Amino acid sequence: MSARAREEVLRRIVDRRYAQGARLVEREVAEELGMSRVPVREALRALVAEGLLELLPNSGVRVRRLERADVEHLYEVWEPLAVQASRLAARTVAAGRADGRLAALEATLREAESAAAAGEGAREVAAHTAFHEGVQELSDNPLLVRTTEQLSRQLRLLFGFRAEPAHMRAQHAEMYRHIAAGDAEAAGACTLLHVRDSRAVALRSLFGDDS
């Protein structure tokens, strides 16, 4: 129940029902979700620990408001990890160890396109996050997966707050093609372009600039 509550609160943050800076009252959230207060309390604590919510000085929590420095720091960490994950994923495929994970990765692309066509922003964001998590899983590097686990949730928060241009989905498709072909260098180069483009989109969406 705690995990379900955490996912439901995160979904409401991503689709902007809970806006940046909005105060969340445990009792009200529990009523909205139709749950008791105990799993909601645990969920809110977990999201505070993950950096998606922040404690208020007196009591309660609020949705974290992303500052420019937060976005910059996130991309500084994500860029090298994302590039390396794509390279390793391509090597996994080239070595014949992908099993069914490549098909699962392709399925996230179809899910994103379906969500975009239906105008379901939260579902599209979840699909984009799932794509990157799928690449990480395909890297066959458990340390990389653990390192990026918390980062993935913060990225999902960021993706929910920014615009999501169609060309970002096209870049995911290109990344997939290079990974599926087992071309590590092309996959890495394509991912680098994607992450830097994503940074520019985030800065433009949140702060009105491309610097």
Rank of each mutant, 00 (worst) to 15 (best):
L151H: 10
L155R: 08
R177D: 07
E164I: 12
E120H: 03
L109G: 03
F159N: 07
A118D: 04
Y176P: 01
R169V: 11
V145S: 05
M168I: 13
A115G: 01
H132K: 13
L158F: 02
G119Y: 10
A173L: 08
L143I: 08
E124V: 02
Q150H: 14
E133W: 15
G160F: 01
L155T: 09
A170L: 13
T148I: 10
Q150M: 14
R153Y: 15
E174W: 02
A117Q: 08
F159T: 04
E164N: 12
A173H: 06
L144A: 03
Q150L: 15
L109M: 11
H172P: 06
L144M: 12
L155G: 07
H172L: 08
A122K: 00
A166F: 10
T147L: 15
L158Q: 00
M175A: 07
G134Y: 14
T129L: 10
E149F: 12
L151I: 07
E164L: 15
M168T: 13
V125G: 00
A117K: 05
Q136K: 12
A116T: 12
G134Q: 07
Q171W: 00
H132G: 02
E137L: 11
A117D: 08
N141W: 13
Q171I: 07
S152M: 13
E137C: 07
H128R: 14
R177C: 05
E149V: 05
D140T: 09
E124K: 03
L155A: 12
A122Y: 00
E133D: 15
L158G: 00
A170G: 11
V125C: 00
V125L: 01
D140S: 14
H128D: 08
L157F: 13
H167K: 11
H167A: 07
H128S: 06
Y176A: 01
S139N: 05
A126I: 03
H128Q: 13
T148A: 08
G160M: 00
A112R: 04
G119E: 01
A112P: 14
A122W: 01
R153P: 04
R169K: 09
A170P: 08
L144W: 06
E164A: 12
G134R: 05
L138V: 12
L109K: 04
M168C: 10
F161D: 07
A116M: 15
G134D: 05
N141K: 12
A173E: 14
R177H: 04
A115C: 06
Q154W: 11
L109V: 10
A163S: 10
Q136N: 14
A170Y: 06
A112T: 08
H172I: 02
R110W: 14
S114R: 10
F161S: 12
G134V: 05
L138G: 03
P165S: 07
A163I: 07
Y176I: 10
A130E: 04
G121P: 02
G121T: 14
S139E: 04
S152K: 09
T148G: 07
F159I: 09
R123A: 15
R123P: 00
A166T: 11
R169Y: 02
A112Q: 08
P165L: 05
E137I: 08
L109T: 06
G134I: 07
R156G: 01
T147K: 15
Q136R: 15
R162Q: 12
H132C: 04
E133G: 06
A115M: 06
L155E: 09
A170N: 13
G160Y: 00
G121C: 11
R110C: 06
